[in-house]
Each structure stands twice: as structure tokens, then as C-alpha cells.
Simulated assay, not measured.
Amino acid sequence: MPSELKKLDRRRKAQNHLDKISGHEEHVLVIHYSCESFYNRPEGQTPRVTSIAVRNYASGQTASFSIHKVAELKGVAFPDIDREYDKLEKEMLKEFYVFLEKHKNYDWVHWNMRDINYGFPALEHRFRVLKGKPVELDESRKFDLSRALVSIFGNKYIGHPRLIKLMEANHITALDLLDGPGEATAFENKEFVKLHQSTLRKVDVLANILGRVIDRSIKTNATWQDTHGVHPKIILEYITKHWIFSLLGSLISIGLGVYGIFF
């Protein structure tokens, strides 16, 4: 279990990053994407991507990349999308990485996009599988809002699934938004437009939550102690680890011992 001092340090770092973001909002992008289910994949293939949405936090302008849009531009009929999926997906990812290349110096806010199952590594790997060359975004430019909320408010700040519960607590409407299982079902049913609408809605929701965290109006289940990083154990840990306090404690013990000898 992490010490209270480590938790406090993580909270400070997350808050500092948020303060940095709030200082240049026009260079902050919020990203989310949808894909087929990454569960029950015995052969280990990365899930195919359906749509990606990137929203400028300051202006609200959103760039979107989706299978059905590429199919329309390429003249591929809806019933033929499944047969041409790899070609369409490659073109979609190519468009996305052209956009990313132009915005490499922006901060990219995301929700749990951390690994090969779901995240920037998954997008990169999928494009490589399709014989594309992805643009790798520097780690310092990625900001996981989901982890930041845990660092700031603690593990119990909201129930699971956290994004949905956070929306409910803050009265954010779920219009067009699908949860994980819902997106997987929509993919199986080839409801690509529905998936795209859900992706667009999620970047809107994430931008909304980001704004509330920055202006301190976000509602959670966190206690005052959790929110402000105040815990009695912090004082004990600080005294234990700081050599001045340890030395002072030793001198006091010695003094009391000597006092006991003479009296």
C-alpha cells in the first residue's frame, strides 16, 4: 500500500499538471476512441478501431476520424465495409496520425488510454499491423484524467464504472454515450455511426469533467481529508523519515533517560 506521503506527492504532481493545462487551454486536446471488444481475444490480436475524436479544450472544435466517413469518401457501400475494413481502417488511422503530427506539442487529455489493449500503444500497434508508420506522442504530452482523479481524490472518490458514476454525480447527460459492453455490441452489429456518436459524446463529457476539476466544482464522494490530502499518518511518516525530527526524538529520549538517573 502506498504511503500517505507518496499519495500526497502524487496529488501534488497531478494538481500541478492540471494547473499547467489551465494556463494554456488553447493547446489542450481531449481524445477518445472506440473499437471492437478487447476481451475474449484468445489469439491476442489488437482490437480494430472504429472511430477517433479529438476535441480542442478551449474552442470545442472537434476533429473526428471514422470508418463510415472514410467509406463514404472512398465510395464503399455500407454492406461492403466489413470486407474492406482493413483498408478503411488504415486510411482512417493515417488521417489521424497526420493530425497528431501537427499537434505533437499539445497536451493530450485521455481516459485510461495507457496500454496495448486500449490506448495510444494500441493505436500505434494497429497502424503498424496495417503497414502504416505511426507518429509516437511523447509521454510528457499525455495526461490520464482518470488516474489524475484517483491521485487527487483517492481510490474511493466515486463508484464503478467511474466515468458513468461521475457523470451521474455531476448531472452530465449520457445522450448517445455507450459504455464498454455497449460499444462492443454496436461493433458486432456494425452500428458504426452509433459508435462514432458515442465517441464524440465521450470527448465532450471528458472536456466537461476536466473543466470542473480545474475550477474545483467537480462533485465526488471524496471526503474533505481525501480532497486536501490531510491524514494523521502523514505527520507520523514525516517525523519518521525526516532526520531532524528523528534526531530530536533521540535527544529527548536520552534526556529523559538522564533525568531518570539523577531523579
Rank of each mutant, 00 (worst) to 15 (best):
F99Q: 13
K156L: 05
G182R: 14
I116K: 07
K131F: 03
E139R: 12
K165N: 15
V213H: 02
F120P: 00
K190E: 10
W111N: 05
Y106V: 04
A122G: 09
I209T: 09
K131I: 01
K156W: 00
M92G: 05
L177R: 15
D115T: 06
D80G: 05
L130S: 11
F96Y: 13
K219C: 07
Y106Q: 10
T185V: 09
S151A: 14
S217F: 00
W108H: 15
R128H: 03
I172K: 10
F192Q: 03
V193S: 03
I164A: 12
H160P: 11
E136Y: 02
T173C: 13
K87Y: 01
L137Y: 00
D144S: 07
R83V: 05
H196W: 04
A186K: 01
G75F: 00
A174W: 01
H160Q: 14
K87P: 02
K90N: 09
I152Q: 01
H160M: 13
D176Q: 13
F120L: 14
F153K: 03
D204P: 00
D144Q: 06
E191Y: 02
E168C: 05
R114Y: 00
F120T: 13
Y106T: 10
F127K: 13
D215L: 09
K194Y: 02
E84A: 12
H196A: 09
I172D: 07
G119E: 01
I152N: 01
P79D: 03
R162D: 02
T220A: 11
P79R: 04
M167W: 01
K102H: 07
E183W: 03
R162Q: 15
I116E: 08
K104V: 07
S217Q: 08
D107S: 14
G182M: 12
I172N: 11
R141F: 00
K142W: 00
R162F: 00
M113H: 07
